[in-house]
Simulated scan of single mutants.
Amino acid sequence: CSAAVAVDRRLANADARLNSIAERVAERPRAALDTPAVAGAVERPAQGYEDVIAKIRRGVGVEDLVRDCGLTRDEAVLLTRLHGGRSRL
């Protein structure tokens, strides 16, 4: 029984914390929620990767993708590995 009571207390504490966080988020101005989470982040629509993939298939390098497309280096490397240098079956 004591284990069940301890779990119940932890759940009640977690629920209270979650409600507190939800209230703080609800109080934030809408404009603050629309800004990118990372300073200097570039927002791209999901279909924006189509242009990047086309560039990769034309042989554009990782550094060029970072500079010209606003990708992080990790994004550029991943997309290059996924879409570059191999014939598609």
Rank of each mutant, 00 (worst) to 15 (best):
I53G: 04
R86D: 09
A3G: 12
I21A: 13
V60N: 01
L65D: 00
E23K: 10
R9D: 12
L18Y: 06
A14Q: 10
E75Q: 06
R73C: 03
S2L: 13
G40A: 01
S87F: 00
L33M: 12
N19H: 13
R17F: 03
I56H: 02
S2I: 11
R10H: 07
E43N: 09
A14P: 01
C1G: 15
R57F: 04
A41I: 03
A26F: 07
L33D: 08
Q47M: 14
G59K: 02
G48C: 02
L79N: 02
A46R: 00
Y49F: 13
Q47E: 15
T80P: 04
E63C: 05
A6Y: 01
P45Y: 01
R44K: 06
V66M: 08
D51C: 05
T72N: 06
L18A: 10
I56L: 03
D74I: 05
A31W: 13
I56F: 05
Q47F: 15
A46M: 06
D34G: 04
D74Q: 14
N13Q: 12
A32F: 02
T80A: 05
V42A: 07
R24E: 14
A39Y: 01
E43F: 11
S87A: 10
N13E: 12
A31H: 14
E63I: 09
D8E: 13
L11E: 11
R17S: 11
R86Y: 08
A6R: 08
R67V: 00
L71T: 03
